[in-house]
Write a protein that binds this DNA or RNA. Structure first.
Lengths: 269, 269
DNA sequence: GCCTATTTGTGCGTATGTATG
DNA sequence: GCATACATACGCACAAATAGG
């Protein structure tokens, strides 16, 4: 008769209390010994129930403190499609700073970590580079209101630095933005880009950066953006990993009213 | 000294064997009793190790058969941004069928399940409807190569049916596409839309539809699309939930070469 | 269809470690 | 130091799913 195991039964009871508001967001669950008595189950069984709820993001356990109902995430919206006002947008560089500020929040960016790397196959394919070529990797960490928001790594063919865009190899930010810098220095104009979004499990670096609790595993949203110049040649690959809980991505196609755009909806939730 | 627990140690050993190819994709892991002997640990401990790897999507356990290294997912790319050739695209209706076929795969769509509902607050906000209003809900399930791909629910103000678009209330597909139908019938022309993508945990319906194994929990990609007419008024909300493993979303901005577009890259992986 | 061996799933009890206040 | 709460680890028993004889 498709009987469900006891830990699921207990989990569903707790879930119902959360849904009904009996256990509000941020409230502490009964402790494990209390749940044992309440349901007449062994400690491992109530732990299974809690684990089941934790993997669904409903509760979070802290050693020494207790288990708590998670606060619903407050999403921050970033717009990937181009901004008709500014030309280009999409969660990078200047556009990121502006979009965050427009929503009344405080953006910040770490200084870039710059490395020269031999190109990995997947990156070489995107940039149409030969196997032995070198790329400049510029890695930055982005924050909103001092909280980790995304990790961003841009790859440029090293050739660009040799041809005059030497500041790409400096571990300092390019104030005018690398898009504009490359246009000024080399006449490479970004006329378009393609984004590819997918879900994947976090790695340990990301788990640390986003301050995610190990155990309850997470999926992150990853975006791989390839930017093209007026010749139709790719000159940049930017990989962005977004916070799994707070990221919301907007894409605008055609004409939509100003009021519908994210930056004009103050504190929509 | 930040010593890591034994189950993590065991998990890392197994992970290394997977990374090195010692355990290939699809291969069976040693059984739990074998791992017990190999690492001198209790069964629960090796089970913790396997659970740790399972939550990261590396392995998958089947009662009665064994635990296996997961096959890497083969993503299917859907393009959200508008297609300059056809006007509108974005993973719905006709555009979905065409994009799947262009990638040499077989799309199929379930007949729509149609309901008249009193509007929920979140949907009312998107469509700018008053609290007591009614909406037409059209739900479809989309498949690629006979395998579940996405669940899609579109909400229209019921007003549209009263004004003449009565086929919105029929539980049959609208062959010419609802976008074109609304334009022909009511002169409502879709001039743009905004997509909002986010990650969230699956619910039980989705778990069943996508045939996901319970236990190893999953995150799905959800898209909420609001379509606007030439007056800037929203007339449709479409919520699409994509398969967590196989979905890859493309967004094109500005001008990119034809060869970079998903539909022209045959079997990119 | 049945029976059996194998493999993972569920559940219990206990002990000890570690984090928190 | 102390009490509390969750984390790790061990051992055991039985259930359920699977594959093969």
């Amino acid at each position: 008769v498709a009987e469900s195991p006891n830990y699921r039964f207990i989990a569903d009871r707790i879930r119902a209390k959360i849904a009904s508001g009996d256990l509000a967001a941020g409230a502490q669950l009964p402790t494990e010994p209390e749940l044992q008595k309440e349901y007449g189950a062994a400690r491992n069984t109530v732990r299974e129930a809690i684990r089941w709820l934790a993997t669904q993001g409903l509760v979070e356990a802290f050693a020494g403190r207790g288990t708590f109902v998670r606060q619903p995430p407050v999403p921050f919206v970033i717009t990937l499609s181009e901004d008709p006002d500014t030309g280009f947008g999409g969660g990078e560089g200047v556009a990121y700073l502006r979009e965050v500020e427009a929503q009344g929040r405080v953006p910040s960016v770490s200084p870039p970590m710059v490395e020269i790397q031999q190109v990995r196959p997947e990156i070489g394919r995107a940039l149409r580079l030969a196997a032995g070529a070198f790329v400049i990797s510029r890695h930055q960490e982005l924050f909103i209101d001092e909280r980790p928001w995304s990790m961003q790594t841009s790859f440029y063919p090293r050739e660009l630095a040799r041809r005059g865009a030497s500041r790409l190899e400096d571990p300092v930010g390019v104030e005018e933005g690398t898009v504009r810098y490359l246009e000024q220095e080399l006449g490479i104009r970004q006329v378009g880009y393609i984004d590819r979004l997918r879900i994947r499990a976090v790695n340990t670096d990301e788990e640390r950066f986003f301050a995610l609790r190990a155990g309850s595993q997470w999926s992150v949203l990853e975006n791989r953006r390839i930017a093209y110049d007026s010749e139709g040649a790719p000159f940049r690959l930017t990989v962005t990993v977004f916070h799994p809980d707070h990221a919301e991505i907007a894409v605008i196609a055609g004409t939509v009213p100003e009021s519908a755009r994210p930056k004009h909806s103050p504190a929509s939730d």
